[in-house]
Design a protein around this nucleic acid. Structure first.
Length: 105
DNA sequence: ATAATGACAAGAA
DNA sequence: CTTCTTGCCATTA
């Protein structure tokens, strides 16, 4: 029974339904796959909830948050160095704190 | 319950 | 390119 303490870090029962869908979408991202907050919100069935995606990335542990950038390909404020290293290790080209891909290039 | 804030987005200037 | 405004979902005070 997840409802009543002894909740593991993978238990999202304390998240709203939308947040749970957002988590599901981010979990689907594979190595080298970079998308925007808006894309995640759209795929989660809530276009316009890009900000909620940022909340999830910032509070839910265990997610590949480095594969999510803003609409212009800009990296996460305050995590540029770390994010660049993680993305480069997956074959993603980063230039001036910006991902260089077909969509963000 | 309201106001301010935030790893956002899109449009206007 | 930068700045400002409005809209969005959720958290925090």
């Amino acid at each position: 029974m997840a409802s009543r303490s002894t909740r593991s870090s993978l238990d999202r029962s304390d998240l709203t339904p939308l947040q749970q869908r957002i988590v599901a979408v981010i979990e689907l991202l594979g190595p080298g796959e970079v998308v925007s907050y808006g894309d995640v919100a759209h795929d989660a069935g809530a276009p316009g909830a890009a900000r909620a995606v940022g909340n999830v990335c910032a509070t839910v542990p265990g997610l590949p948050w480095w594969r999510v950038v803003n609409a212009t390909g800009r990296l996460v404020p305050g995590h540029e160095a770390r994010q660049t290293a993680l993305l480069e290790s997956e074959g993603v080209t980063v230039r001036n704190d910006r991902v260089r891909t077909s969509r963000f290039g």
